[in-house]
């Protein structure tokens, strides 16, 4: 077994590095730049039952050490993802992929997950109950333990693959939401999605984003994300996938010490398309520096 490998819910990952949903599309653009088979896996763009154009422009604003996005879940809909994106992905990526799903009703979550569950290429379902951008749903599922549990139950009832519930950080008690998902049958938890933020243009005196608010991510959120991963890892027994502001091999190790079995990398891919490849390349030297033989041994080491 390789010293970087970890086991995520029954599937062996060559390393714990996973590009986060929404920052890696369906893999195509990055596959032109490097062999994406070096990744542990990746989480594809948040997919919904029906196609979505997303929010009006501008959708992107800069922030200190990060960015705001209000993409609004633009995606071609689950059927085209299955008929077009997954076959295309197969030609450049031979590992199981993480299917990221969003929805606007419990039934919609279940239906989208059921369709993706039937795809051989899909290794895990990552259910985003946290997207802060969409007025008509997203937010409420992730901010209420009872609603989070309802989505979890509905998805578990129609799927066979490991279900990872992806949590919103825009809550007062993240451990309570995680516990409710575990109770409802979730196989794993991933966090954090973006933190709701705002930028105002001094020139126009109006919000920069057409959607007014957007989700903050990037290095700015790292300590907040780390704290939440730590709290959730303490509160649940199921595996936790940590993310939020990760941009270096050191950050990956820190996330794992806080309890993460695997680590997703989001905004860093946008600023540097080679970020994940570099992080994976840097891991062995960082492990040597801190006396780590095998990454799997340090999971939750700081708890």
């Amino acid at each position: 077994m390789d010293r970087l490998s970890v086991n995520l819910l029954g599937i062996e990952l060559d390393n714990p590095v996973i590009p986060a949903s929404g920052t890696f599309g369906y893999g195509r653009e990055f596959a032109e730049l490097y062999d994406i088979n070096c990744l542990g896996t990746f989480s594809f763009k948040g997919t919904t039952l029906r196609p979505r154009l997303g929010n009006p422009l501008p959708r992107i604003a800069e922030a200190p050490a990060g960015m705001l996005n209000a993409v609004g879940l633009q995606n071609p809909g689950v059927d085209r993802v299955i008929s077009e994106e997954l076959p295309r992905l197969k030609t450049v990526f031979r590992k199981p992929v993480m299917a990221n799903v969003s929805g606007f009703s419990v039934e919609e979550y279940a239906e989208t997950c059921a369709r993706l569950d039937a795809c051989d290429q899909v290794g895990w379902l990552e259910v985003n109950i946290s997207c802060p951008n969409v007025h008509d749903g997203g937010m409420s599922f992730g901010t209420d333990p009872a609603m989070a549990a309802r989505v979890t139950k509905a998805v578990k009832a129609v799927t066979t693959k490991p279900v990872i519930m992806k949590l919103s950080p825009n809550v007062t008690d993240i451990a309570a939401i995680a516990a409710a998902c575990q109770e409802a049958g979730a196989d794993g938890i991933s966090l954090i999605n973006t933190l709701m933020g705002l930028r105002i243009s001094l020139k126009s005196r109006r919000p920069v984003l057409a959607n007014v608010t957007g989700g903050l991510s990037g290095p700015a959120v790292f300590p907040v994300a780390l704290r939440m991963v730590y709290q959730v890892a303490k509160a649940v027994k199921i595996p936790v996938v940590g993310m939020g502001g990760v941009s270096s091999a050191e950050d990956v190790v820190e996330m794992m010490l806080a309890g993460a079995t695997a680590v997703e990398v989001g905004a860093a891919n946008l600023a540097d398309p080679f970020a994940c490849m570099k992080i994976i390349g840097d891991l062995p030297a960082v492990m040597d520096r801190y006396g780590i033989d095998n990454l799997r041994d340090i999971i939750g080491g700081a708890l």
Binding site: G22, T23, F24, G54, L57, P58, R59, I60, V71, Q74
Partner: peptide, 15 residues
């Protein structure tokens, strides 16, 4: 357009 990535990955600039 305001861009997140500039190479087609983030859907930050779609019209």
């Amino acid at each position: 357009a305001r861009m997140g990535c500039g190479f087609g990955a983030c859907m930050g600039c779609t019209c």
